[in-house]
């Protein structure tokens, strides 16, 4: 099937293309986008107008000039300003909860739904299935009849 081949080719292209996405740029600008204003509500450092942020941006430039790496500066900021600057709970201690609970919720919820659909559909396999092919055979177009059937249901 040619269509399948086209899909396959496109898919392979994606696989090749995505890792090729290059990164790199101004570390100061990147850091400013990764750190958050410690006294505002959800304002990133690079767009923050507070005095504190002004000082923090200056500090980033100084430390970079002094030869520190991005990671070192980030650690230094967390130690000095507190984990607030991350804009997210740090992944340590009790704050792991913030990361685990959503995953548990999502996995648990989806697993529950999966289990339910599975057990329901298995149970209904034992009962005679409603014959949906019959009425569509009498209608001129299966899709239209499906739509019309749904209209009737309203």
């Amino acid at each position: 099937m040619t269509l399948k081949r086209i899909f396959l080719a496109l898919f392979l292209l994606l696989l090749v293309a995505i890792p090729a996405a290059a990164q790199g740029g101004d570390p100061a600008a990147e850091l400013q986008k990764e750190l958050w204003c410690p006294i505002c509500q959800g304002i990133r450092l690079d767009v923050c107008e507070q005095q504190v942020c002004e000082q923090m941006r200056e500090l980033i430039d100084q430390e970079l000039a002094a030869g520190k790496t991005k990671e070192e500066i980030k650690q230094q900021f967390i130690e000095f300003y507190g984990p607030v600057v991350l804009g997210e709970p740090p992944r340590e201690g009790i704050n792991w909860l913030a990361w685990i609970v959503p995953i548990l919720l999502a996995v648990g919820g989806l697993a529950l739904a999966g289990w339910m659909t599975h057990s329901w559909s298995r149970r209904s396999q034992l009962q005679p299935a409603p014959d949906t092919t019959l009425d569509s055979a009498t209608e001129p177009d299966p899709y239209l009849s499906q739509v019309e059937r749904e209209i009737e249901d309203l």
């Binding site: 958050w36 410690p38 509500q41 959800g42 990133r44 507190g82 984990p83 607030v84 600057v85 991350l86 804009g87 997210e88 709970p89 740090p90 201690g93 009790i94 704050n95 909860l97 913030a98 609970v101 959503p102 919720l105 999502a106 919820g109």
Partner: peptide
């Protein structure tokens, strides 16, 4: 799940500060 995760994140600072007495921020990231 999205609703409760969002709610959880919104109230998480209360839980975290109660248990660790360190201020954290839960925002866009």
């Amino acid at each position: 799940v999205a609703a409760f995760v969002t709610l959880f994140g919104t109230v998480f600072p209360i839980i975290s500060e109660a248990l660790t007495s360190t201020k954290i921020a839960v925002s866009a990231p």
